[in-house]
C-alpha cells in the first residue's frame, strides 16, 4: 500500500493535520498568524543553507525556523511593535533565501516545490520525519497544555500559578519551528500558515472549550487533506493549494451551519 503515492501523501497529510490542529489553535488564540508566516518564510533561507552545506532540508529549515522564532520571541516588545519586527524578518529572510539559492552554483533547484510544496512526492522517509515531528510537537503541547493555556489567557494568572510564562512561549515557538520544518515539503512555505489557521478557525464555531476546538481542528485538517488530495487526483489540480481550498470550503460550511443554528435557536426562544 505504501507504494501508492496517494496513500503516502494521505499518511503524511494526516500526520501534518494532527500537529497543526492544536498548534493552529494557539496561533489563532495568541494572534500569531503573522508569526507563522515569518517562520515559514525563513524556511526558504533554511532550504538554501541546507543545499549550500549539503544538509538535509529538514535540519536546515528547522535550524533557521527555530532561530527566527527564538529571535522574534526575545526581541518583541523591546523597541518595535511585533508586526513591524515580523515584517522586517519575514521578508528579509525570504529575500535572502531567494538570493542565496540563485547564487548556489551547480544546483538546479525547483523553488516552487518549496514555496508550494509537493505532497504527492513524499517518500517513506519523509513520512517518518513528518510523523516524528507531529508526535513530538503534539506530545510537547499535551505536556505543557495547562501552563500554555493559562499563560495564553492571562500571563499574570499563569505567573501566580507558578508557571514560567516566557518558557511556555518558547515551547510554543519551537513547536511551530518543528511544524514548519516538516510541513515545507508537503504544502510549501507560502501555505503553512493556512494549514495552521483555517482548521482552527473552522473548529471555533463548534467548540465550547479549548480542548474541543483543538480536536475538531484536527478533524477538519484531516478532512481537508483527504478532500484536497481527492480534488488533486480527479481535477488534476496542484495538491498543496487544493488542500487549502478544501479547508477554506470547510471553514465556510462551518460558519453557515453555525449561523443557521444560531438563527433557529433564536427563533425557538
Amino acid at each position: 500500500m505504501l507504494d501508492d503515492f496517494m496513500f503516502r501523501a494521505l499518511l503524511a497529510g494526516i500526520g501534518l493535520a494532527l500537529a497543526a490542529g492544536p498548534l493552529g489553535c494557539f496561533v489563532v488564540w495568541r494572534k500569531m498568524a503573522y508569526f507563522g508566516d515569518a517562520t515559514a518564510h525563513a524556511a526558504i533561507l533554511g532550504v538554501a543553507l541546507s543545499l549550500a552545506f549539503s544538509l538535509s532540508t529538514f535540519i536546515g529549515v528547522l535550524l533557521v525556523a527555530a532561530l527566527m522564532a527564538f529571535c522574534i520571541a526575545r526581541l518583541s516588545g523591546r523597541m518595535y511593535a511585533i508586526d513591524t519586527l515580523l515584517g522586517v524578518a519575514a521578508h528579509l529572510s525570504l529575500a535572502l533565501g531567494l538570493v542565496a539559492v540563485s547564487k548556489l552554483s551547480g544546483v538546479r533547484l525547483d523553488l516552487s516545490s518549496y514555496l508550494f510544496g509537493d505532497i504527492l512526492a513524499v517518500s517513506r522517509a519523509d513520512i517518518v520525519v513528518v510523523w516524528l515531528g507531529a508526535v513530538l510537537t503534539t506530545a510537547l503541547l499535551i505536556w505543557r497544555w495547562e501552563p500554555l493555556l493559562t499563560s495564553t489567557l492571562n500571563p499574570d494568572l499563569a505567573a501566580a500559578r507558578g508557571y514560567d510564562v516566557e518558557r511556555e512561549q518558547l515551547v510554543l515557538m519551537m513547536s511551530l519551528a518543528v511544524l514548519v520544518a516538516v510541513a515545507i515539503k508537503l504544502v510549501g512555505a507560502l501555505l503553512i500558515t493556512a494549514i495552521l489557521i483555517i482548521p482552527a478557525a473552522a473548529a471555533r464555531v463548534f467548540s465550547k472549550t479549548p480542548e474541543q476546538m483543538a480536536v475538531v481542528a484536527i478533524v477538519v485538517g484531516v478532512l481537508a487533506v483527504a478532500g484536497g488530495l481527492g480534488m488533486s487526483l480527479f481535477a488534476d489540480t496542484p495538491s498543496g493549494p487544493s488542500i487549502v481550498v478544501v479547508a477554506g470550503l470547510l471553514f465556510l460550511i462551518a460558519n453557515v451551519i453555525a449561523s443557521a443554528k444560531a438563527r433557529s435557536s433564536g427563533r425557538s426562544r
Binding site: L153, L157, R161, P210, Q212, M213
Partner: peptide
C-alpha cells in the same frame, strides 16, 4: 499557593472557554 484575581480578564473571541473549564484551568 497564591490565588490571584486579575483586574480584568479579556478572553479573545477566538478562544472558547466555558466557566466550568475555566475553573479547572491550571490543574
Amino acid at each position: 499557593r497564591i490565588g490571584y484575581v486579575p483586574q480584568r480578564l479579556s478572553i479573545d473571541a477566538n478562544m472558547p472557554m466555558s466557566v466550568d473549564r475555566f475553573l479547572r484551568l491550571g490543574k
